[in-house]
């Protein structure tokens, strides 16, 4: 078996408050993301899941101070890279989709222009070729009338459409090896959420991507992910295959989280 694409080893760190006091928030976080899998990092507010994800890309808040740990991507420790080396990885080999896509897109440029600019940055070529690729990417994520949509600004997109455009950018224009999705459907309506998660699952499988899905929603995990990392209060509680986590949880915290997520629903109620 090949080595995992991503391995986080003993990541620990604290937030520094304005008066200099340190509040520990990550405690010896370790897990691996095997190649070609969708791995979920699940946890409630303050569990440290987003901070871990942002650290992979080196875009954690400036007040976060790492005290220990390694982040091995394809065998190299990202934390030892020079800023320009990191820029060669961020957006090219690892890309991210954020929760609020409309806020993540630049409001003053059309959606098509933004995607095409990123395409040229990463792959070179002419502006018209980049736009052609952009429109193909928008079509691939099922945005209707992609030629017209490409000429629109982010505020003209609904939340669900904007998230599709972000996924087109992060997964298709960037063509990364590792795609990080930070709460990509939180705040979207359930019917839209279901469609977006289906899209993510299809893209990952068709293109052989490796993905890391950060979420608080165990329902989304059960349907989409191969492996699960459960986090609580800055620690990894348990890791395993999705089947093992859902059917044979070993830790009490995982059991409680599952029970709370199921809210008394029995399997019979759901099959109906």
């Amino acid at each position: 078996m090949s080595s995992p694409l991503l391995e986080i080893e003993g990541l620990s760190g604290s937030f520094r408050s304005p008066n200099g006091a340190l509040t520990p928030v990550l405690h010896d976080v370790s897990f691996a993301v095997p190649r070609g899998t969708v791995t979920a990092i699940v946890g409630e507010t303050g569990s440290g899941k987003s901070l871990t994800a942002l650290s992979i890309l080196g875009i954690q808040p400036p007040t976060f101070q790492r005290s220990a740990g390694r982040i091995l991507f394809d065998g190299r420790d990202l934390l030892t890279l020079k800023p320009e080396e990191m820029r060669g990885i961020r957006g090219r080999r690892i890309s991210i989709v954020f929760q609020d896509a409309r806020a993540a897109l630049n409001p003053v440029f059309t959606v098509g222009r933004q995607l095409a600019d990123v395409h040229r940055l990463h792959h070179g070529g002419s502006a018209s070729r980049a736009m052609k690729r952009t429109i193909e990417a928008l079509r691939a994520v099922s945005i209707p009338e992609p030629e017209r949509r490409a000429r629109q600004y982010p505020h003209e997109f609904s939340g669900g459409m904007a998230q599709r455009a972000m996924i087109a950018l992060a997964a298709l224009v960037c063509e990364p090896e590792l795609l990080i999705l930070d709460e990509p459907t939180t705040g979207l309506d359930v019917t839209i959420q279901a469609a977006i998660m289906e899209l993510i699952g299809d893209l990952v499988r068709e293109r052989g991507l490796t993905a890391c899905l950060i979420t608080h929603d165990l329902g989304v995990v059960a349907e989409t992910c191969d492996r699960v990392v459960v986090m609580n209060a800055g620690r990894v509680v348990e890791t395993g295959t999705t089947e093992a986590i859902f059917t044979r949880p070993r830790q009490d915290y995982t059991r409680r989280l599952l029970a709370a997520s199921q809210l008394g629903e029995t399997p019979e109620m759901i099959e109906a």
């Binding site: 359930v190 959420q193 929603d217 329902g219 989304v220 059960a222 089947e243 859902f246 599952l258 997520s261």
Partner: peptide, 12 residues
């Protein structure tokens, strides 16, 4: 709507 809601269970 009902069929879109994700279920926190394995194998549904």
């Amino acid at each position: 709507l009902l069929s879109a809601a994700p279920v926190a269970r394995w194998g549904v």
